[in-house]
Write a protein that binds this DNA or RNA. Structure first.
Length: 413
RNA sequence: CGGGGCGUUGUGUAAUGGUAGCGCGCUUGGUUUGGGACCAAGUAGUCCGAGUUCGAAUCUCGGCGCCCCGACCA
């Protein structure tokens, strides 16, 4: 994409009403715009990052047999009454239509997927299965905060698995754990993301959170020095030794909860009487698991983990573009290179604006595309392109040819 | 929901009772082009409502909004 065509612009100053790093940088660089507290528009650059994250998650969910679907946000009150959450959940958005009929704006989708499963699942032979979606969730947070990390409307991947018995759930749950680590690995934050014991399991004693250690985190976790499993502060008083390795050595870190998986048991299947006949003809209420990842929160977390004083530094896997061409001259070379790279399927942002070199460098560093290609008269004298790594600042010069550039990029992977 | 802070052009700020000013952006013209260039001329603002006062961005009351701390967060 040509940067001159991009309708968003960078801002030199951070907005005064944002103090979190993720919001300051994402807004300054033109990835997001705040509509109101806890509600953000994703701008073209931000949406590209979100789609990258979404695709990583989709691939990993498909790999463990997840089937993608899409459920509504506007939901009938009756379903929520059935589980008791119409009254019990105080962050539920409730809306009325003209005839005073009430609806919920979905904060999660157990109330929808369980009745849905009931329509199709009749036999133990239909089990197990897992379904997932990417959907905006609505939660009436009393206090939205930390930029895009805690919003009132936010994109979430939620999956639900359905099983005949606990053993089968355990089996799938372990697969989900692995898939989640793959996701955080591919998003570039594996090294600082910890599997964390937390409260909230209705079936097992604990649920599992994926917590990414960063000073911007809202949660406090205790990381076992021996096996790197972590324990959320909310349950630490109950847990003296590491449940995994019996270690007693913990270090405290602030962390962001980027994912959470639960064994739900029959908590939601029972109210809707979601059951099948087993091999002996006996009625069995289904056992469920649920698995969530906040995509916006993941994006914000990556921003918190990867930035410097000049701006964002995206991992290649989630960067809005693979390369950023900075044209410092008025000749046609940069445009040619742009077309050639695009022709080879490379995602390119091309800074073709009438702007000073310094402004282009500053904006490129702010936007944080991992690889900058600098085309200038100086470099063209040698018939070269300068390749600059956003993260390390390392520069290399290669022949002015798309093939040479691609070769160089591949060598660095 | 409790506590604290804040609300001035698109954005960041100054003006503490007396002419709403500055940087950036944007527009026009010209000169520039390897780390947010320069000159000139323009553009645009006191969150909303009430009150005090000769006079309110400034003081008072109410509302709305935003940020931070806490509580809350299947």
């Amino acid at each position: 994409m040509k940067q001159s065509q991009l309708f968003t612009k960078t801002q030199r100053n951070a907005p005064k009403d944002e103090s979190s790093v993720n919001a300051q940088l994402l807004i300054r660089a033109g990835f997001a715009d705040k509509l109101m507290a806890g509600v953000y528009t994703l701008l073209p650059l931000g949406l590209r990052v979100m789609k990258k994250i979404e695709n990583i998650i989709r691939e990993e969910m498909n790999a463990i047999g997840g089937q993608e679907l899409f459920m509504p946000s506007l939901q009938p009150k009756e379903n929520w009454l059935k589980t008791g959450r119409w009254d019990a959940m105080d962050d539920l958005y409730k809306v009325k239509d003209k005839s005073d009929r009430e609806f919920a704006l979905g904060p999660t989708h157990e109330e929808i997927i369980v009745p849905l499963a009931k329509k199709f699942v009749n036999s133990y032979k239909d089990l197990p299965f897992a379904a997932y979606q990417f959907q905006n969730k609505f939660r009436m947070e009393l206090r939205a905060k930390s930029g895009i990390l805690r919003g009132r409307e936010f994109m979430m991947k939620d999956s639900y698995s359905f099983h005949l018995n606990e053993e089968d759930l355990d089996n799938y749950y372990e697969k989900a754990k692995t898939a989640y680590f793959n996701i955080f690995d591919r998003a570039g934050i594996k090294d600082q993301t910890y599997l964390t014991f937390a409260s909230g399991g209705t079936f097992s004693k604990y649920s599992h959170e994926y917590q990414t250690a960063t000073p911007a985190g809202e949660d406090i976790i205790y990381i076992c020095g021996k096996c790197s499993l972590a324990i959320n502060k909310e349950i630490k008083p109950e847990v003296e030794t590491c449940p995994e390795c019996q270690g007693k050595d913990f270090r405290e870190e602030k962390a962001i909860e980027v994912g959470n998986i639960f064994k739900l048991g029959t908590k939601y299947s029972a109210p809707f009487d979601l059951s099948v006949k087993d091999e002996k003809g006996e009625k069995k209420t289904l056992v469920m698991g649920c698995y969530g990842i906040g995509l916006g929160r993941l994006m914000g977390t990556v921003a918190e983990v990867y930035h410097d004083n000049r701006g964002l530094i995206w991992p290649e896997s989630v960067a809005p573009f693979a390369v950023h061409i900075l044209s410092l001259n008025k000749n046609a070379e940069a445009e040619k290179l742009y077309n050639e790279l695009m022709g080879k399927g490379i995602e390119v942002l091309y800074d073709d604006r009438e702007a000073s070199a310094g402004e282009k460098f500053a904006d490129a560093d702010l936007i944080g595309i991992p690889c900058q290609l600098i085309v200038s008269d100086k470099n063209m004298k040698e018939n070269e392109v300068e390749i600059k790594n956003r993260k390390t600042g390392e520069k290399s010069f290669v022949k002015f040819s798309a093939a040479e550039i691609i070769k160089n990029l591949n060598e660095k992977k």
